[in-house]
Design a protein around this nucleic acid. Structure first.
Lengths: 171, 171
DNA sequence: GTCAATGCAAAAGATTTGCACAAGT
DNA sequence: ACTTGTGCAAATCTTTTGCATTGAC
């Protein structure tokens, strides 16, 4: 298992190789954004990354954030997710180097994101490719449900009771 | 297996029951939209539904389309999907009555949508719920890859050759 | 020096919202 | 009659784009 220091070093090297191969420029913004991405362990959106870069006093524009995230996704240093939970319109990103593909669990109440690996998914992937003559490149598996975090459960229960009262009134 | 005539009848009945239970009104728009949804076999977005309603000469506003789709999703007559392919920002919908949950395959080249069922997914679902103390309500499994449609393959191959030329020039 | 990358602000596209009117209860 | 649903247009939110400037090569 790689520690986070060598992980970022490996990521930097990989990005460098990719940029050279593609004839893209090794701008300081690209490496600074990579640094920020690899310093985080969460599933962040473009705006959060933008804000974090500003707090880290390496201010980049939103355009550069979006542009660079696309580059990082292209060279497989970042994975892009579309979780269809509360905010169906924005993408969430995570670093990918040294981390195997995993499923995501989204709590429909508190929007917490959890991760889960299951080797059976790989078997399904193989079957689907063969059956439908489809060359599978990647996948996304998301489970939606209710997490067991105490605060979330309490909040949800209270909200449900409130909703029942409302329903009782109108029905 | 239900035919489409009885399917729509069942859907209408179910919607009626849901609206009554919730104290919502049985507006003609809601039933007309349900009708349109159940007459289709594809994965459509809100705008396509809006346009279809206008061609069917039952003009409804976009606001009503969005509002009604939410109602139909709530009562499980419609499923809402976020496929993160070409258009990461819009949702695609499909009727759900009488159709089991399935995985989707999205061709990254032509954006064709295919469906696929695998019982092993259910097993994963059970495992994940138990392991992480998470009550799974629903899921979304999407495979991205290249389909084997002749026209799509030819188009993609031509595009790839063009891209290689470009890369050769700059690198 | 050249051309791609950045920053900014404006544009675009999907969805939501506020308000006046229509219609289901 | 009462109050929710609808229609319209404006607002919102994320992401993309155009253009002038900066910086990597």
């Amino acid at each position: 298992m790689l520690n986070s220091t060598s992980l970022i070093a490996e990521a930097r090297t990989k990005l460098e190789g990719y940029l050279l191969k593609k004839g893209l420029r090794r701008s300081s913004e690209r490496f600074a954004i990579l640094e920020e991405v690899y310093s985080r362990d969460d599933h962040f959106d473009a705006e959060e990354l933008y804000q974090a870069m500003h707090q880290r006093s390496f201010a980049v524009s939103r355009a550069t954030v979006y542009n660079t995230l696309e580059v990082l996704v292209d060279c497989h240093l970042v994975r892009k997710n579309q979780f269809g939970d509360e905010d169906n319109t924005k993408s969430r990103f995570e670093k990918s180097l040294g981390r195997q593909q995993h499923a995501h669990l989204i709590c429909v109440n508190c929007h917490r994101v959890m991760e889960f690996c299951d080797p059976r998914l790989q078997l399904i992937k193989n079957t689907v490719g063969n059956m439908l003559q489809f060359h599978v490149e990647s996948h996304s598996l998301v489970f939606y449900g209710e997490c067991s975090d105490a605060a979330c459960v309490a909040r949800t229960k209270a909200a449900a009771e409130h909703a029942n009262l409302q329903e009782g009134k109108t029905a």
